[in-house]
Amino acid sequence: MSQTVADPAGAPVSLEQRFQDWIDAERKIEPRDWMPDAYRRTLIRQISQHAHSEIIGMQPEGNWITRAPSLRRKVALIAKVQDEAGHGLYLYSAAETLGASRDDMVADLLTGKAKYSSIFNYATPTWADIGAIGWLVDGAAICNQVPLCRTSYGPYARAMVRVCKEESFHQRQGYEIMMVLAQGTPEQKQMAQDALNRWWFPSLLMFGPPDDQSPNSAQSMKWKIKRHSNDELRQRFVDMTVPQAEFLGLTIPDPDLKWNDERGHYDFGDLPWEEFYAVLKGHGPCNRQRMAFRNKTFSDGAWVREAAAAYAGKQKARQAAAVQAA
């Protein structure tokens, strides 16, 4: 493992050291550059999990497409769910530049070997949940994803630039839904409050375990895959979201939430970490439903994939025959 190359002055330097120096100088890594195996593995795991999250993330919202309250809401929701599929595909495409196979990644999702974000294991029983997801879940995703636009791996960073541009529409359409409900009848406002009550803590859990319990974070920060710690991003999200809730006239369901003048940030109460680990282990409200639906969709589409492959094969054979005949 101690392969060396010469530095500009002719002194031997390990490939790892040269890689780290390159990253420390804020330069990007591209697919065919030398990289440590662990860097490659970390990225494949992170990018494919991110892709799986986008794919599974279509389900909670897809649930409301047929029942959206107006045509305006319906076209927006269809476009948003289509974007989530698109984000998944940008990300699979980025992971493939590292040598991961698309078929393997899809198989890992379907068999449950791979993880996806736990937030998508929560149910969407009311229309206000669609507002809350756009506002809070996409808001949290934006906090996580904006720094990833500067991540050290070029294809991942470029995919994230596209994703972030589109997420902005997602968050605004969600907030608009919340706004209309919050300014509506008392029942509508209550529906919005109820959705906020259910989505607030799960959204904060999206940032992952506290820094002192996040074993891989330090290495990811050193490689500049991650740019900010989980707790830092979580705080940023809280600071950004509290005034937005105030504007809506809704109450964040945390009695310990209060502005801390000294820190210049909002303090907030303990997070339900037992819930986080339970959902991660498969015991969330919808884990089994999400996986069953994904597997059913994949099986239901098998005949389409087979027909397309047969058609492509036939066309190719015809072209080859025509070339021979000419």
Binding site: L89, Y90, S93, A94, E96, R102, D103, V106, P155, R158, A159, A302, R305, A308, A309, Y311, A312, Q315, K316
Partner: peptide, 30 residues
Amino acid sequence: SKVNWPLWEVFVRGKAGLSHKHVGSVHAAD
């Protein structure tokens, strides 16, 4: 069942006057 469709690199021309630029890839049967 594996899908195994080939990988295609995608290039987009933003508007007339610009060259095509690489944006990513897709899988497709043909």
